[in-house]
């Protein structure tokens, strides 16, 4: 048949063309990270004498040592803070989202429609609006420049509640809840022992994306923290980067620090690949 001939010919043209586009997209996405990795192995002098993607003298170990020695090892604090803010915030935040999303989807407390409407509005409120009042409120409560000033606001994840509601609707059948009720389980117990395990893939997705959102957050820590010991890693690296015009020795520190801060996230996403894809699909198809 003539159509299949045309089809076959167009496949000969289109297969390489399609893959060429994908190769270009992959290079665009990955080359900056390759640059980060090669640059972290160079000394300051090698930046001007070697090409951007070329290795100079192998200086990675010295860079890492210098990084952790700087300001009495403050980089350790930054990494630990980021893990606490993002790890703690994501675990607690995702549980709070799951409970609220489940409550909106599967129970009928008074005001639940209002709460849902407020949640959706909350999705659209820009961080910029919240930063100044949050700072003033935090200073009123005398928690400016403390761990909690950053930790508590970042727990709030209205979009996570929206998703959790979708997951609860899709994955927890009413019959199961009814059966649990007949067996005499209270609502709270039913949530923790029956519904939450059923919602697990969705909750893990909320958790993972909230982890990324907190690890990425910059505005709130910038506004609420002045003590460098409380900084998350991105704020710390930002502060160092503002000094490098006067003190070029900060450049290799910022580059090596960036590499170490990026690695765990990239690895987490690659390892949990199957999990978050499933969650995204469940959240978007519904």
């Amino acid at each position: 048949m003539s159509t299949s001939v045309v089809d076959r010919r167009s496949r000969w043209v289109s297969i390489p063309a399609v893959h060429l586009v994908l190769v270009i997209a992959a290079l665009y996405s990955l080359l900056p990270l390759v640059w980060l990795a090669t640059s972290a192995t160079k000394s300051l002098g090698d930046f001007s004498t070697t090409g951007a993607f070329e290795f100079g003298q192998w200086n990675l170990w010295a860079n890492v040592k210098a990084l952790f020695a700087q300001e009495n090892g403050i980089f350790w604090h930054w990494l630990l803070n980021s893990v606490l803010y993002a790890g703690g915030g994501a675990v607690i935040g995702a549980l709070i989202c799951a409970a609220c999303g489940y409550a909106i989807a599967k129970t009928s407390f008074p005001g639940r429609k209002l709460l849902f409407a407020l949640t959706l509005t909350g999705v659209l409120v820009p961080t910029t609006v919240l930063a100044l009042p949050m700072y003033l409120l935090a200073s009123e409560l005398r928690i400016v420049d403390t761990f909690w000033a950053v930790f508590i606001p970042l727990l709030t994840n209205p979009f996570g509640v929206y998703l959790a509601r979708v997951y609860a609707d899709a994955s927890v059948p009413d019959e199961v809840l009814e059966a649990a009720r007949v067996d005499g389980a209270g609502q709270l117990r039913t949530f923790f022992t029956v519904a939450l395990p059923m919602m697990r893939p969705g909750v893990v997705t909320v958790l993972l994306f909230q982890f990324i959102a907190i690890w990425n957050n910059f505005f709130l820590p910038l506004v609420l923290l002045t003590n460098p010991k409380l900084f998350p890693v991105s704020l710390g690296l930002f502060q160092w980067s503002t000094r490098q015009n006067q003190f070029p020795q900060y450049t290799p520190l910022v580059i090596t620090g960036s590499l170490l801060a990026v690695l765990p996230l990239v690895v987490a996403f690659l390892v949990l690949n199957r999990q978050w894809r499933k969650g995204l699909a469940a959240g978007s198809v519904k």
Binding site: A26, L30, P32, L36, F218, I255
Partner: peptide
């Protein structure tokens, strides 16, 4: 996955790179 990876890079660090 290759094209997705930059999303996992914190904005400050993406900006610095």
């Amino acid at each position: 996955l290759a094209v997705f990876v930059p999303y996992a890079v914190p904005v400050v660090i993406g900006g610095l790179i």
